[in-house]
């Protein structure tokens, strides 16, 4: 029983990180109509950049690591949008071109990591060591720190979307790109910023989860697929759906990992996704996915 509760707490914490990662992916689609298949590579890059600063070449504390790495992943995203995505926007088969281009980019970025850092797995130390006992349950400081970091980023994101000019522009573009352009919103700048924010969230996820999982150059794919499954299950473009699906699948992962082993996590996730889609084809909170 006590073990179960601790597993659930872990699941809940992973859930909020997954939500962060997945929401970046869905944001990028919702605003910019881009499904970014290189999303997982930014996760990898976030983790490896953090490793460089915290372990490999310096021993900065995590707070500084975040302050340095997140802007880098943001700028990488903006650059990708400018150089690759934007020229493709005028294509009639935009979706298809973006799909292939970002797939290629993912392979490029992952192998760049491989060439620079080698194939051996790396790991980040935990943010904080030790654990705290609350009402009889043991929670590691690491988990608590993860939760707080993720929650802070999530709150900043929500406030940003709701209160700032840029955030409001993003929401306007998501609802009606042409209308947004007519009222003077610089469409391409909003696309670029959105792309940057999304890759930054992916990078943040990489740093947060790296102490939990080992880092490998191709590790980002697992998280891309996890983001995909959360996003589809929740309903593409729905932030609320992403939130619920993130928690649901995070808790499921903790439970499955505890009872059956981590290898079973992805198969079980996929099974859940399959069932969700059979019952609700547009995902839990999806609205417009169905076609004739």
């Amino acid at each position: 029983m006590r073990e179960l509760v601790e597993v659930l707490i872990t699941g809940f914490t992973i859930g909020i990180v997954y939500f962060l990662v997945a929401v970046g992916f869905t944001l990028c689609y919702g605003v910019g109509r881009v499904l970014n298949y290189s999303y997982g590579s930014f996760f990898t890059w976030g983790a490896y950049l953090a490793w460089v600063l915290a372990v490999g070449y310096a021993e900065l504390n995590y707070f500084l690591v975040f302050l340095i790495v997140l802007p880098i992943t943001f700028l990488m995203g903006v650059a990708v949008d400018r150089v690759i995505i934007r020229p493709l926007r005028s294509r009639p088969e935009f979706d298809f071109s973006v799909l292939l281009a970002t797939l290629g980019l993912a392979v490029f970025l992952d192998n760049l990591v491989l060439v620079i850092f080698g194939a051996r797995t790396k790991s980040l130390p935990e943010f904080l060591e030790g654990s705290v006992t609350l009402a009889g349950f043991t929670i590691s400081w690491q988990l608590l720190a993860m939760f707080i970091f993720a929650a802070v980023v999530a709150v900043i994101l929500f406030v940003f979307m709701a209160k700032t000019r840029t955030g409001m522009s993003m929401r306007a573009v998501a609802q009606d790109p042409i209308g947004a352009r007519i009222v003077g919103i610089p469409l391409f700048r909003v696309f670029a910023i959105t792309f940057g924010i999304s890759t930054m969230l992916s990078g943040a996820g990489g740093i947060l989860l790296a102490p939990r999982f080992f880092m490998t150059p191709l590790g980002g794919w697992t998280f891309l697929v996890k983001a995909l499954i959360i996003v589809i299950a929740g309903g593409l473009g729905s932030i609320k759906g992403t939130l619920y699906a993130g928690f649901l699948l995070g808790i499921l992962e903790a439970l499955v990992g505890w009872q059956l082993g981590l290898l079973w996590v992805m198969p079980v996730w996929f099974l859940v996704l399959f069932l969700v889609l059979l019952i609700r084809p547009a995902g839990l909170f999806g609205a417009v996915a169905r076609k004739g």
Binding site: D95, V225, I229, L236, L263, P267, L277, K291
Partner: peptide
């Protein structure tokens, strides 16, 4: 296939990635 095209891409990629652990 009842869903919009992009869903097909997402779902099939998930299938591909999940097959190896399976």
């Amino acid at each position: 296939l009842r869903l919009a095209g992009i869903y097909v891409a997402l779902l099939t990629l998930a299938f591909y990635e999940v097959l190896s652990p399976l």
